[in-house]
Design a protein around this nucleic acid. Structure first.
Lengths: 338, 338
DNA sequence: CACGTTTGTTAATGCGTATTAGCGGCGTAA
DNA sequence: TTACGCCGCTAATACGCATTAACAAACGTG
């Protein structure tokens, strides 16, 4: 028995019609050609019997689409560690893809160079999909620029700066969310607050710092920006600057700083308040219920697929969306100490 | 300006050679044909100038294989809930697929009928992949039989009974692992032990009970099989039967029964020992460190891809593998009470 | 000089699909 | 009777690449 895939030609031979007729029946092209109901039934019967499915590769070559949505991540899609940051995005992506009757193609074949995957390489398979979702804290601007230049349909999950053109994205509105937390702190009497983190590099970090800075200046209070290095060192500096509330870019750093505070017998939140600007992205163990906000990751994944679909079928519409983050009251932000 | 992609034909025209020559240069087919170094350089120069990349679609069409591995699950691949049972399998699958330079195709488009997805349906896209990994506690025997009958390359993660023929699988050796735990209990003086669970239906359940039963009879002790209904009810029965150790098929049921024991002030493990036959598959919160074994889920995923690859390229070899489970000492199995 | 052999290149073909142009046969109106 | 349109279907082609067979030219070898 031949292991070859069944083709339209096979179906055609079985039913004594031409390959064209089989294609017509499959695509229900009533406009292009009429098929006698009797013939159509014969063809359909053969298709059912053999379990024939159109080869997506050939189909894409001929008609330029195959109902595949590509998913590219710089790290493995299924991380071995816990605290899986990508997971909620993928839940949303899968849900929307399912609704659109598309299959998900994970580009696991992308080779790793210098510790991370690359979109463009010798055997670039990106075009196997109709369009592509890009996931990752940071995306290489050069690769983004090339995607845009080549006109490949894609959407980034997370806001991206222009890269030789506007980048389609569905991101979280970090500036507003961060500013909201700053205002909350101000209402609670905080007048000297700190931002601990890079505040640069990845767009998501820059956005947080931007929201922080503008809200601080608007409220007329003092904002301090400190990079995270060593817990003791950072804490020394923050205390020296008489800060009453600490905004951490990374949840995990917040957990570390809070435990440092505990070691020094500084009460959280009475002496020192904490705000975590988003969900944990790294493994972080803490019993604290951090104040901050929740990134709508599932919704972001869902909407990214929506935007991608609109790009693919050229229906236009806004290709850059910022989604609001849900504030979390938490238990680490209290009235500022006297 | 035309937005069309650059093709080999374009390169050929630019350099005054044939499309074949361009293809030869690209694939470095020294064996098939020799290219003059001077010609090769001219072609390469044009390629560099235009930034040409081979169209993967056309390439796969000519090569007659996709380098897609399909992944089918009856439930969504990315479950919304925590305690994600599939995840470790997928980690292994992805790792191996990456090594084989294959992409993963998730059949998210499979429609849900009667509360679960089906492999076979109107618009069956299974053949889109070169081969397919099947994931799930339970697989429909009819669908398995059809897969075999149609000669579709596939591998099940988890042992499956014959379905009109031997089913290729990579499973966990539940009988041995369970028997090992029984022997451990016997060594600790247990003489009346219970198996709580279905022990039938899914192969993984039947396998556990089989291992339990044979080890019990081999040791000449008394084994009791009880289905899990209501915690109090089950506990009544087990105590009435004077059981000293409880083997639970489902981790979550073990957690429930242990808390029932605690309510009755029965000490675990001194009065009552517990063995969980595998990792949690449902959400289960417990502070107990259960005795039992660990299912090598990641390894199973990895090896399933290996077996699938050997089936696809027809290199033969064993298509049914059982992997050993790592015993876990835990803290719930102790010397039997007097 | 007839006859291989090696070298560099190309024409032709196939992969599986969608699409376009058309072809006979038939009925109907001019 | 001719002209025209409709019906049901098919031949031919394009898509971009890889592969195979073949070919022309240069180069020995007896």
């Amino acid at each position: 028995m031949s292991n070859r895939r069944v083709t339209q030609q096979d179906i055609a031979r079985m039913t004594g019609v031409s390959q064209t007729t089989v294609s017509m029946v499959l695509n229900e092209r009533e406009d292009a050609a009429r098929i006698a109901p009797e013939t159509r039934e014969r063809v359909l019967a053969a298709i059912r019997k053999t379990g024939y499915v159109a080869d997506p590769i050939a189909r894409r070559l001929a008609e330029q689409r195959n109902r595949f949505l590509g998913v590219f991540t710089y790290e493995p899609v299924f991380p071995a560690g816990q605290g899986d940051f990508y997971h909620p995005f993928l839940v949303g992506i899968e849900e929307c893809a399912e609704r659109m009757r598309c299959d998900l193609l994970l580009f696991t074949s992308a080779p790793v160079v210098d510790g991370r995957r690359r979109i463009f390489h010798q055997d670039n398979r990106l075009r196997l999909a109709d369009g592509c979702i890009l996931l990752g804290r940071w995306l290489d601007p050069d690769e983004l620029a090339r995607l845009i230049a080549e006109g490949q349909p894609f959407v980034s999950v997370g806001r991206r700066d222009d890269a030789g053109g506007p980048v389609p994205y569905v991101g979280a509105d970090y500036p507003s969310a961060t500013a909201g937390q700053v205002r909350r702190a101000v209402e609670l009497g905080h007048r000297r607050i700190a931002y601990v983190g890079e505040g640069a590099g990845a767009e998501s970090h820059a956005d947080r710092l931007r929201g922080f800075t503008s809200a601080v200046s608007e409220a007329g209070i003092t904002g301090v920006h400190v990079r995270f290095t060593d817990a003791a060192e950072v804490m020394d500096e923050l205390l020296a600057r008489d800060v009453t509330a600490i905004f951490v870019e990374e949840f995990a750093d917040g957990a570390i700083l809070a435990s440092e505070a505990k070691q020094r017998a500084l009460n959280v939140p009475d002496y020192l308040s904490f705000v975590a600007l988003g969900d944990p992205t790294r493994q972080a163990s803490t019993h604290l219920d951090f104040a901050g906000f929740r990134i709508p990751r599932r919704e972001m994944g869902w909407q990214a697929v929506e935007v991608l679909a609109s790009i693919i079928d050229g229906s236009g519409g806004e290709t850059q969306r910022l989604l609001p983050c849900e504030p979390v009251a938490g238990a680490t932000l209290a009235v500022a100490r006297a």
